[in-house]
Design a protein around this nucleic acid. Structure first.
Lengths: 124, 124
DNA sequence: TCATCGCGTAACTGTAAGGTTACGCATTAT
DNA sequence: ATAATGCGTAACCTTACAGTTACGCGATGA
């Protein structure tokens, strides 16, 4: 039981990160834990809207909640982001090659379009 | 105009990554470019469904398409993933602290629950 | 020229998301 | 006890999405 690594469904994590407001909530919680109302105050949407975002973030285990009196304090839990990071890891090696690919792509695109233009003029 | 870095809306990127099928398509394209039909063949859903996923991936600039005869070959473009990576970067420093936070959280949780139990028994 | 292949798109359906307002339940203050 | 605070949830609306089948269009082969 010691050293047991908790695994989270990266499915829920990716889905939680899809919304910009939820990412902003996480960014906010990086500065420190906050009660729900205070979080809601930082956004232009209604408090229930934030409450639902927090529910999704809870479901994805990206935040934890605990009660302090009548406050519900939310705390960031970055653990599930490791899964995102490891998924991304497989793509890092492609980044360096990416610009070269782009160059080749653009050149091919130009070649193709010139050809199309010629065909349209009946030069084929 | 030289050395101009193209920026992508990380909004579209995160949203594109939200769907497991689309992530699988990207994973598939890491092995090499493929025409749309071949991609569709790798999944249990219909070809038009994949076609729509590809449209979203195109919109997020995560794939590029070019025609070869009657084939439409899709190529991975990992560039937009850089934005995801840099967003994630701000959280890496929290990962090491995460387990310690979890420990503190669980302990606080225990303490709170014991207290609640005592209150329910009228021991407050 | 005509049939076939490859693939995107339109039209439709069911479901989930994100937003709202109204309400209810604890907890704290008076 | 009663009022007020903090926050989640229900009910509802609108839009987006993932899937389907039917169709159409360009490219290729006969």
């Amino acid at each position: 039981m010691r050293n047991r690594s908790v695994t989270y469904s990266s499915e829920a994590t990716f889905q939680a990160l899809a919304d910009p407001t939820r990412r902003a909530v996480l960014d906010l919680l990086r500065r420190g834990s906050q009660p729900a109302g205070q979080i809601a105050g930082a956004f232009p949407v209604s408090r229930p809207a934030i409450s639902k975002h927090l529910r999704l973030l809870r479901r994805a285990h990206l935040v934890r909640e605990h009660r302090e009196g009548r406050h519900r304090v939310y705390q960031l839990n970055p653990e599930p982001l490791r899964a995102v990071d490891s998924w991304l890891e497989q793509y890092r090696s492609f980044w360096s090659a990416s610009l070269a690919n782009l160059k080749a792509f653009v050149e091919a695109e130009h070649a193709r379009e010139s050809q199309t233009a010629r065909k349209r003029k009946g030069t084929s």
